[in-house]
Design a protein around this nucleic acid. Structure first.
Lengths: 221, 221
DNA sequence: CGGCAAGTGGAGCCATTTCTCCGGTTGTGA
DNA sequence: TCACAACCGGAGAAATGGCTCCACTTGCCG
């Protein structure tokens, strides 16, 4: 048995790992990222210790469960750049990811909080972000997106959409669609000028990190 | 000592009640509506039992703490109707309450979840809502607000804003202002037509009630 | 000023969730 | 097939928060 990084799991262990990831995807989707981990273990028909052995932290499990979703996000951004119409590329992308967010309570969380303990996800987010910046730039230059929109307005929209999804529950899909449609109207170049200044990129970065904190405020006392 | 409804509290008890309400306002503002009640009791320098004796449920305490804020909300709506300019009345109102939401983590919660155990608040919400309906109607008739906006779009906006506030923390004020400005652009009559259908009022009502549930989804298992 | 109902605080019980320890089981290489 | 390292699952310790019980204190009325 090699003790190298690429160490192979025993077959039963590998099977359990897969069961856990599948269960995590299902449970996170239904109940959100804060669900008790025992629910995941139960769903996978596996002991809680097995879960902790394979994924020492919650973030590690989240990262494994949402890797696919994250690459879907990056690919959506990349494909949006291929759309010959700059506006429909941009708006279609926004609609796409907001729909993902509405369809799955877990995805909403992954998009709007950084998970410092999950470098895999963070790297993807980074890559996606670069595409987003280009997407926005292109739509602005085409004169379809209002000139004072900044890349930070996208996470802002995602956070807002997360609020809608969180609050509306069953009706999340319809509510989110409505919200996004309204919001996109505000992004169009032919709308008026916007009165509030754009968000400071550093503030937004900090906000994303901050949201990574789980649960309630640490009493710190 | 009368045992009637209007029963007077002993002087020390009344003082403690006031201290509790003050503490609740402060703590809810800082940490949100889900804070441990012991934090409120500590802040008020009062035993936890005293808190429970005076406010048997969390909602009762919330109701007492946010009565002022709720009347401020209603009055803002009422005053907005006095604004000779239908658009500035509407948009000013939206900005006002969103700013309240951003300034105080508790207020954000009170606006976006119904508290069935707090009839005082609910009644105010009802009254406010009637003003809002008129505000929207008036702005539409003046041709300033897009025709396909419905009253349900306002709680939608509030939920979205709650998401922004929740996620941005320290930067909530700036982020919320930016978000609202963008959003209001989408509400203007001179923007294009919106592609997604309005929210079913019953869905929205259900969503508000649903959000009243505290914490995570009940496992129900 | 004296009696007592109203009021008080905190110890303590119950429920929930995170995470670890350990005795028993099983896959796999020799 | 055998032996052992890897693996398993669940009991349970520890932390947190909701809520109650009860022995003690105090404002108020006569």
């Amino acid at each position: 048995m090699c003790t190298l990084l690429g160490m192979t799991l025993r077959r039963d262990a590998a099977r359990n790992r897969d069961k856990l990831i599948g269960a995590a995807q299902a449970v996170f989707a239904e109940q959100g990222l804060d669900v008790p981990l025992e629910a995941v273990a139960d769903r996978a028909c596996v002991g809680i210790a097995t879960l902790y052995r394979r994924f020492p932290t919650r973030d590690a499990l989240i990262a494994a469960a949402f890797e696919d979703r994250m690459t879907e996000y990056v690919r959506a951004a990349e494909e949006a750049l291929d759309d010959p119409d700059a506006w429909s590329g941009f708006s279609g992308f926004v609609e796409h990811i907001c729909e993902m967010q509405a369809a799955d309570r877990g995805t909403g969380g992954v998009f709007t909080r950084t998970l410092p303990a999950a470098p895999v996800l963070e790297e993807q987010r980074e890559r996606g972000y670069m595409f987003v910046v280009r997407l926005i730039e292109r739509a602005k230059q085409a004169g379809r997106l209002r000139a004072d929109v900044t890349p930070e307005d996208l996470p802002l929209l995602l956070m807002a959409n997360a609020g809608v999804v969180e609050a509306t529950g069953d009706a999340a899909s319809a509510a989110s669609r409505r919200f996004v449609a309204l919001m996109l109207e505000g992004f169009r170049a032919d709308a008026g000028t916007v009165s509030a200044p754009p968000i400071d990129p550093r503030d937004m970065y900090r906000a994303l990190r901050r949201a990574g904190r789980r649960r309630r405020a640490t009493p710190s006392a």
